[in-house]
């Protein structure tokens, strides 16, 4: 005789993720918008400390195209991490709307949508030490997502998936029973990547994944993220403070300062023809591994109070100065930037 309890468990296992894929539907319903995976419209993010509200992001508009790597660059405190965390619903959005495959994912959304979203969107965190559970072994950490959504047939299938992923990120399958503290920083970050990629996400937010690592290990982790991206045609939001890293991995780069996007362009174009003074200051800060060049270089400091004279009647906006190249400026600045573009020459 079959025990009633056992039957129940069976049933549970047979209902994996929701039957109807809302996000697939969203894509089909709006084929005209299909090349944009994430849309942020007039987004406002604020934190309340006691009764004081601090607005970190205001009136943010950003489109992320399907299959691209978008680099988001800015200094600490500029709001770049806040944006990433708002996308994945860790930070609350207090105004505006974020859509993913044309389905709203900001503010109050049905539980089902939120659950489904977690299978589509994943995050790689900055500090590989803090973001792994100290008390869980690697097997548990990597397969937690699989378990939560029952994305495997049976125990054997699950183990096989985890082992394959471990090998894929360059870790030995024997490591499965070890704990995070037994690994070096670079290995831990690879575990973080394995945990993310095993879900086969459509969209990955990589929040400064290499800032805490040694230079020689940075290259490994960067290569790994790029390989996955190219192989699976994923969309990646790559958050960093260092332009040199972002150029290597990104298709487009958005530069953010004090919560505002000040410039967006294709990666190479941004290096060729940076227009906003903050972008220029970031570029000048990248160290050149060449003594002769480096000694001649001057560092440009960005002082917004001296440079911009914004008035209410002519507030700065993100303006398209050439196809695909946007700069935040007001009317006199726009004239200046247009002239500078002429001097620098058109797009190659």
């Amino acid at each position: 005789m079959i025990n009633e309890e056992e039957l129940k468990v069976e049933e549970k296992q047979q209902t994996p993720v929701e039957e109807i894929d809302l996000f697939e539907q969203g894509r089909k319903e709006h084929p005209e918008d299909d090349d944009t995976i994430v849309k942020m419209r007039d987004v406002r993010i604020a934190f309340k400390i006691g009764s004081i509200e601090r607005v970190i992001i205001n009136h943010l508009n950003l489109d992320i195209k399907r299959g691209e790597v978008l680099g988001l660059v800015g200094e600490s405190g500029s709001g770049k991490t806040t944006i990433g965390r708002a996308l994945i619903r860790i930070n609350k959005v207090s105004g505006g709307e974020i859509t993913f495959n044309n389905v709203k994912i900001s503010g109050k959304i049905p539980k089902k949508t939120e659950r489904l979203l977690k299978t589509k969107m994943q995050m790689i965190f900055q500090d590989p030490g803090d973001s792994l559970n100290d008390r869980a072994n690697i097997d548990y950490i990597v397969s937690e997502g699989l378990r939560a959504f029952k994305l495997y047939k049976d125990e054997e299938d699950r183990l096989q998936k985890v082992q394959q992923m471990m090998q894929r990120v360059g870790l030995r399958p024997e490591y499965l029973n070890r704990y995070p503290h037994e690994f070096s920083g670079g290995q831990r970050q690879r575990i973080g990547i394995a945990r993310c990629m095993i879900m086969n996400p459509e969209f990955v937010i990589a929040d400064e994944p290499i800032s805490a690592l040694d230079v020689s290990i940075r290259a490994q982790v960067l290569n790994l993220i790029r390989e996955f991206q190219q192989e699976r045609k994923m969309t990646v939001l790559f958050i960093a403070h260092d332009l040199s890293v972002v150029r290597y991995i990104s298709d487009r780069i958005a530069v953010i300062y004090a919560g505002h996007i000040v410039e967006i362009a294709e990666a190479n174009r941004l290096f060729e023809a940076p227009l906003h003074p903050y972008t220029k200051s970031l570029l000048s800060a990248v160290p050149f591994p060449d003594p002769k060049v480096e000694r001649k270089k001057k560092i440009i400091t960005y002082n917004p109070h001296e440079l911009h004279h914004y008035v209410l009647s002519d507030a700065p906006k993100l303006v398209e100065v050439e196809p695909g190249h946007f700069v935040r400026c007001n009317t006199p600045e726009l004239e200046q930037y247009t002239k500078e573009l002429e001097r620098l020459g058109g797009k190659k």
Binding site: E227, R247, P289
Partner: peptide, 28 residues
């Protein structure tokens, strides 16, 4: 920088993302 002799120095220099180009993976 201009005449490194030890393979380890080569490897350190080659892994710098500033030297990377999009068409090839970074060496590490």
């Amino acid at each position: 920088f201009y005449n490194p002799a030890h393979p380890y120095t080569w490897a350190l220099l080659a892994s710098l993302p500033q030297l990377g180009s999009k068409d090839e993976p970074l060496s590490y």
